[in-house]
C-alpha cells in the first residue's frame, strides 16, 4: 500500500462529490412488468466512478492519475469495513429472531449449489465452454473461492481463467445486478422476504450491502429485520462458505461437468478403451 498515492486528495474529493451527487439523486423506482426495479445511489456512484476512471477515458488522467487509480484497490477493502460494522449492529439487537431462524440460515448455504444447476449446464451445453466452466460456475467467485481454485489448478489454468472472468464481472456489475435482482424478486412477492434477505448474504460485502439495501427499500416496514438476516447470513458465508465450496461445490462441479461435456465424455471413453 503506497500511502502517498492512497492519500491523493483529488481521489477522495472526487469520491465525496460523486457520493453527494448520487445520494442527492436518491432512490428511483422503475415499474417493469409485474415488479419494480429499484435504482440506488450506490449505482450512480459506481457509474460516476467508472466514467471518471482514467483507464477508460484518458482525458480523466488530469483529474485522477492512472497511478492513483491503480493503487486505489485496497481502499475498497477498507471503505467497506465501516459498513460491515454498521451491518453487524443490526444483528446484535435482533439476535433472538436470528437464533429462531437458525436452521434456515445454516441450510441456505447449500443453496449456493444452485449456481451449478443453472449456470454449469448452460455454459457446457449452450455456450460449449470447456473446463473454464468449472472455475466459473462452482461458486460465486469471490476471494476465498479464488484462493481454492488457485490452490488446486493455478490461476493460469482454464479453471483459473473461468473464475477470474466471473470475478471481474462480479466486481464490475455484481453489486448492481444483486440489488436489481433482489428488489425485483421482492416486488414479485413469490418468496418470503426474509428468505431473500438470507440469500443476499452469499455475496461479497458490497453485493450484500446493495442487495439488502434494495430489499429494505422495497419493504421499509421490515427494514431492521431484513438487514439483520442478510448480515447474519453473510457472516455464516464467511465462516462456512469456504468449506461448502471446497468439499461439496467443487467436487459436484467436476462430477456434473464430466457427465455433461462432450469432450470430457469422449476422453473418458478413450480411457476405457
Amino acid at each position: 500500500m503506497d500511502l502517498k498515492l492512497l492519500l491523493n486528495w483529488r481521489l477522495h474529493l472526487t469520491v465525496i462529490l460523486a457520493s453527494l451527487l448520487a445520494e442527492w439523486i436518491g432512490i428511483l423506482r422503475i415499474p417493469m412488468g409485474p415488479g419494480t426495479l429499484l435504482l440506488l445511489p450506490l449505482f450512480y456512484a459506481f457509474i460516476i466512478g467508472v466514467l471518471l476512471n482514467p483507464h477508460l477515458f484518458s482525458g480523466m488522467n488530469r483529474i485522477i492519475p492512472k497511478s492513483v487509480s491503480n493503487a486505489a484497490g485496497p481502499l475498497i477493502l477498507i471503505a467497506i469495513l465501516p459498513f460491515i460494522a454498521k451491518f453487524g449492529s443490526t444483528i446484535g439487537p435482533a439476535i433472538e429472531q436470528i437464533i429462531a431462524a437458525g436452521p434456515a440460515l445454516i441450510l441456505q448455504e447449500l443453496g449456493n449449489l444452485g449456481t451449478m444447476l443453472l449456470a454449469l449446464p448452460f455454459a457446457v451445453l449452450v455456450l460449449r465452454m470447456g473446463r473454464e466452466t468449472i472455475g466459473a460456475t462452482y461458486s460465486i467467485a469471490r476471494e476465498p473461492n479464488i484462493a481454492i481454485i488457485s490452490d488446486k489448478y493455478g490461476l493460469r489454468s482454464p479453471e483459473g481463467i473461468g473464475i477470474m472472468g466471473v470475478y471481474v464481472v462480479g466486481t464490475m456489475f455484481g453489486t448492481l445486478y444483486f440489488a436489481l435482482m433482489a428488489g425485483y424478486l421482492a416486488s414479485l412477492d413469490i418468496f418470503d422476504v426474509r428468505a431473500l434477505a438470507m440469500a443476499c448474504g452469499v455475496g461479497s460485502g458490497s453485493m450484500v450491502a446493495a442487495c439488502s439495501g434494495a430489499l429494505a427499500e422495497a419493504m421499509p416496514g421490515m427494514r431492521d429485520e431484513l438487514l439483520a438476516f442478510s448480515g447474519a447470513s453473510n457472516l455464516l458465508t464467511y465462516a462456512t462458505g469456504l468449506y461448502v465450496s471446497l468439499f461439496i461445490a467443487l467436487p459436484a462441479a467436476e462430477w456434473l461437468y464430466k457427465r455433461l461435456s462432450p469432450t470430457a465424455l469422449q476422453e473418458a471413453r478413450n480411457e476405457n478403451l
Binding site: Q108, L110, G111, A119, V168, V169, M181, F191, D192, A199
Partner: peptide, 28 residues
C-alpha cells in the same frame, strides 16, 4: 473474456441467489 463469461456470471449470480432463497423459503 467477452460476452460468454458475462452471461455465465449473471447465471451464476442468479443461481446462487435463487438457490439460497428457495432453501431459506422452505425452511422458514
Amino acid at each position: 473474456t467477452g460476452w460468454k463469461l458475462v452471461i455465465v456470471s449473471l447465471l451464476v449470480f442468479t443461481g446462487t441467489f435463487v438457490g439460497s432463497a428457495v432453501v431459506a423459503h422452505l425452511m422458514l
